[in-house]
């Protein structure tokens, strides 16, 4: 999976599972301040990312550092690489 494909799939998660308007979905968008997610929504985000990318997310430390959509793209990319995908 290429970087643009990861970006597209993550964006789709935000569009479909969170019904966030396309215009708001930008790499620099802050998921808490700009998109209105809270710590509990992260649970749903993790479920959707696991489903979409067929990965297992267990690293809570890295998850806690996520602030922007770009952080999520990087997080997914790293997790996939660690899983040898």
């Amino acid at each position: 999976m290429t970087e643009p494909e990861i970006v597209e799939l993550v964006n789709k998660v935000f569009e479909n599972a969170f019904e966030i308007e396309k215009e708001k979905i930008k790499p620099e968008a802050h998921i808490f301040m700009d998109l209105g997610l809270d710590s509990l929504d992260i649970v749903d985000l993790v479920v959707e990312l696991q489903k979409g990318f067929k990965i297992e997310i267990t690293d809570n430390e890295k998850l806690r550092e996520i602030r922007t959509l770009q952080d999520i793209y990087d997080f997914v990319s790293t997790t996939r690489a660690e899983m040898g995908k």
Partner: peptide
């Protein structure tokens, strides 16, 4: 079938 985020929005 929605997430809590969709309901809250």
């Amino acid at each position: 079938d929605s997430t809590a985020y969709v309901v809250k929005s």
